[in-house]
Structures are given as structure tokens and as C-alpha cells.
Design a protein around this nucleic acid. Sequence first.
DNA 1: GTCTATAGAACGATAGAC
DNA 2: GTCTATCGTTCTATAGAC
Lengths: 234, 234
Amino acid sequence: MSQPSEQSRKTRILDAAERAFADLGFEGASLRQIVQAARVNLATVYYYFGSKEGLMAAVFERRFGPLRDEHWEALQKLDKEAQGYPLPMEKILETMLRPALRLATAAAPQGRTVMRLIGRIASDPDPRIQELFRGQFREVRQAYLERIHRSAPELPEADILWRFEFIWGAFAFVLCNPAKLERITGGMCNPADMNTLLAQMVACFAAGFRAPAVSRTGPASRCGKRRPNARDRV
Amino acid sequence: MSQPSEQSRKTRILDAAERAFADLGFEGASLRQIVQAARVNLATVYYYFGSKEGLMAAVFERRFGPLRDEHWEALQKLDKEAQGYPLPMEKILETMLRPALRLATAAAPQGRTVMRLIGRIASDPDPRIQELFRGQFREVRQAYLERIHRSAPELPEADILWRFEFIWGAFAFVLCNPAKLERITGGMCNPADMNTLLAQMVACFAAGFRAPAVSRTGPASRCGKRRPNARDRV
DNA sequence: GTCTATAGAACGATAGAC
DNA sequence: GTCTATCGTTCTATAGAC
């Protein structure tokens, strides 16, 4: 029991940490600033979460647990609709990108923060954070890759992987600093306008997956595994 | 004059700083670690560069000055070839992406580091770094946007800007952690294989620019400027 | 469970001798 | 130009009272 309890201390810490990590990255955010915003003592963080890394893990789990569930439900629904036939690429991409954007509206008023968090963390330098983040979505990622492969069977696996990474790179980049993006495009691109962002990404990358193969050999190719060397010229 | 001078102290500091910033980001890298790697004293950094931010600015200028020159040369050559006609989208994208990749081989043995630096810095949380980086390429960026617009005149400006940002997001993401990308794709995607990376990006995003418009109105549209609100549903 | 107090280390930056 | 020494701050983390 305590006095300042519009919410539990734990929740307040998670909210403040989420915002700090989203704005400043894992390294840039400090626990002192977080506990000040959460109106709790520094020691409280260690009591509940053990360490800064533990706090980050809890921030992840709170948001990304439900997000994973939503992905699985959406995938199940998608497969049911398909009845064994390959899915339209647009449908797959929309299903893949929508949950993260939905979360941003569902988790109000912290929603926009969650978007930035995803963007920021996807390109965080710290390997501990990389692994923490990746562990949350490893299976989901594989599921989408399989659907894409089934819908573009002629595309070599290497090509699919490259373009798949391009999607997440673009997504993270756009999400991690919406204000900057809006500024440098003179207000023409606003990531907070999530319907437009979704439509633009689906249109761009569905077309991208339909582009001709780049790898020289077929789907069973190993050409992606070629070891590049210092004599490669660009 | 001094003893350990396989290179000048200034160069050694720049090399070490470049590597540290590329690996750990601006905040994550510490001056003490940099001066240790450069085998100089901490005060030397302040003598030459004034501050940590000044050091980062010098790191940028050393690499991105020549990079800008290369962009302008490539653009000039491109326009000459075109003779006033719209350029093929593939040609524009290849011209736009190649200099950064060329730099990676030209600046050996620091080349790979420069690639990671570009990727890391493009999504750095610190607004000072954002501005420092953006200032290096503002005009170059505008030049490529104009060429793209001329080659896809039917595409609304908002659509062009969205997809343009997707490109840089994908590029930064792939560059900033090549080792991670290679690992999670089971060795099928290796950003150090720069010819393949370039070909994959050109193929994917040239097709992306040819995808139908998403914004409802024409090139003079303002629909991108719509203020989204909290009731937007995804 | 929650607090105060503080350890112990790392940080950016500067002063001043040579 | 280059160094040593150090200031003042901030950080993660912990010990121990209540």
C-alpha cells in the first residue's frame, strides 16, 4: 500500500521506462530519470526488476507478449481464409505490419511511445538488447517468411530474406523518430497517420517482392552464401 | 613530433572514434576508450576537437565531405547521360546508393566501419547527431528526390517521400549491423557482399516506386498533410 | 515493500606544468 | 603540442533501517 497510487508503482515504472527507452535508447536512458518520472525511489526498480536490463525485459514482455498473441491469431485467420492457396502478397504484409500499429492505438495514452520503442530497439547497438528483442519474435518472423515464400515460390530464398530485412529496416526507421520524419518531409509524411503508413509500406514492398529475382540461381540456391572478399568492387 | 607515429595522432583518434561510434553509437562510445585505442592522452582529444561532439563532427567531415563530392560527380554524369529525358529508376537508385558502398571499399581497412557508422548514426536518438548527419546530405538528398520525381511524374509527392524514407531506413538497418544480419539469415544475406546488397536494393525499390499511387490525389496533393488524430483506427 | 544513504566506478571536461 | 592530475557530475547497484 502506498499514497501516490493512481496506478501501481510497478506500472508507473514500466510506463516511465518505456518512454525513456523509446526516446533515448537503452544506454541513453537512466534509471534516475525513470524513477523520477515514475515518482518512486531508485531502489524500487531493483526490488521489482533486479537491474536495468531486467527492467527492459519487463517492458518488452508487457507489450510484446500480447503482440505475439495477436500475430498468431492474425496468422491463423489468414491461413483459414486462404484454404491452402497462396496468399496475395499485400494480404501477408498487411497482416504482418498491422499488429504493431494497432498496438500504438490500443495502448493509449502510451501508444505512440510503443511505436518509437519498437523502432528504437530494432536498431539498438547493445547485443543484449538485440537478443532480448529478437527472442520475442523469432517464431513469428519465421511464420511470415514461410507465407511469403509460398506466395512467391519462384523467388530465391536469399532474395526473400533481403527484401524481408528491408521491410523491417524501413519500418523501424519510420517508427523510431516520427517527429523527425514529419519535419524533413515538410509535413507530407506523418508516421502517426498509421493508415497511410500501412498502405504505403504494403504498396511499396508488395511490388518489391514481385520484382525479378536478383540471385542467379533458383530457390534452392546457395549463392547468397558466397563468401565475399576484399577484392569485391562496387 | 612524437614517438608512436605510424600515423598522426589526429588520424589515429579519428580512426578509433569512427570505430567506437560505429559500434556503440555516440552515447555508448566513451572518449576514454577511444584515446586508449588511439594510444593518446585524453586531453589530446580536447586539444584537437574541443569536445566529444566536435570529434563526431570531424569524423563526419572526413568521410562525408568526399562522399558528397562523389555524389555530385555521379549526379552530373547521370544528367549528362540522360540528355534531358527522365532517367530509368534503376539508374537513379544505383547512383544514389553506390557512393556509400564504394566508400566502404575505398577507405580500407576502415571501410566496413564506415558502413556501420552510416547505419548507426542514421537512427541515433540524439538530436545533435541527427542534425549533424542530416546537414551533411541535405542538398544531395534534394537532388535525388528531384530526379526520382522527374522519372515518376505520375506519383504524388507524398508517395515519393514515403518510399524514399523506406529506402534509407532499409539501408541504415542493413548497414548498421552486418554481422547480425548474416547470422539471422543463416549466412544468406551478407551486407559485406556489396554488389549483391546494391542489386537487391535497386530491384526492390525500383519496383516499389513503380507501384500504384496510394495517396488519393495527384502530385499537387496535400493529403499527406492531413493532421491525424487519436480516433484514427488501424 | 519502501525508504535513505552511499559505495564504487565511469564519464566529459578543464587547469596548468613542461 | 603533449602531458598529469583532478574536478564535478552521473551512473548502476547495494546495504540496511523501518
